[in-house]
């Protein structure tokens, strides 16, 4: 009898927790979705060959369309165009556009992570693990467990700022429970009424000295952008 009571007490508890975890993830997605934006910034990639820096301009419209254009560095002239399903790359010395399929990219970074709110909750089970403090900020710790085999990371731990719903840290785990990657948001700025991460560092935990840091210098939100920017035609131009 005692046991049953315990179980009865336990069930609503988990329900509340998991609901709010879903809510938090939804809020994170809402917070990082804009009608449109244009941002300038740079990436600093560190690898076995040392560091390299490339500057870029990024455009996005809605959840699905984004375009990154590199203006200096090793990637100079390269354009990356992402729709909800595909990723296209135009290299400066290539005449045709390269399409990266999911298969090719799987295992490195999760493709669906950038696809907006629908997929996060569709592909992952969420669970609130508790609250912690990172750099003086109060955060929710949320666990995401993959529901399908189509995603790159079996498990992720999200650390979400409890006030502005910016993801401050993500830990990526493999199936065997090994920490593979870490993403840290190093700088958050308030632009208009939104809080935006403007500096992030992704470190590969399996390889020494392997990291990618991105810094945004300037951000314009909800500005009118021509649809033509987000077309293969424009990419090939």
């Amino acid at each position: 009898m005692k046991k049953i009571l315990f179980i009865l007490l336990f069930i609503p508890c988990t329900l509340i927790f998991s609901q709010s975890a879903d809510d938090i993830v939804r809020k994170v997605d809402e917070n990082s979705t804009y009608k449109s934006y244009r941002a300038e910034g740079k990436v600093v990639v560190e690898g076995s060959y040392g560091k390299r820096t490339s500057e870029f301009i990024a455009y996005a419209k809605g959840v699905d369309n984004s375009l990154i254009e590199f203006i200096s560095g090793e990637e100079e002239g390269q354009k990356i165009f992402k729709t909800s399903d595909d990723l296209y790359i135009k290299y400066p010395y290539a005449e045709d556009i390269q399409r990266l399929s999911r298969k090719k990219t799987l295992g490195a970074v999760s493709y669906d992570e950038m696809s907006g709110e629908r997929d996060t909750l569709k592909n992952y089970k969420t669970k609130l693990l508790g609250r912690e403090t990172i750099d003086g900020r109060d955060v929710y710790k949320i666990e995401l467990i993959a529901k399908t085999s189509k995603v790159a990371h079996y498990k992720q731990e999200l650390f979400v700022d409890s006030e502005n719903f910016v993801v401050l840290k993500v830990l990526y785990y493999s199936k065997s429970g090994k920490l593979t990657k870490e993403m840290v948001t190093k700088e958050v700025k308030k632009i208009g009424d939104k809080f935006i991460g403007t500096r992030s560092l992704i470190t590969d935990k399996l390889k020494a000295n392997n990291s990618t840091e991105s810094i945004l210098f300037s951000i314009e939100l909800d500005i009118p952008l021509d649809d033509k920017i987000f077309s293969l035609d424009e990419l090939a131009w």
Partner: peptide
């Protein structure tokens, strides 16, 4: 015919050349 091999630049950025 034309073809576009994908390769890497000196410091590891990917690139393609037709």
């Amino acid at each position: 015919d034309k073809f576009t091999p994908i390769t890497m630049t000196r410091r590891g950025a990917s690139t393609g050349i037709t």
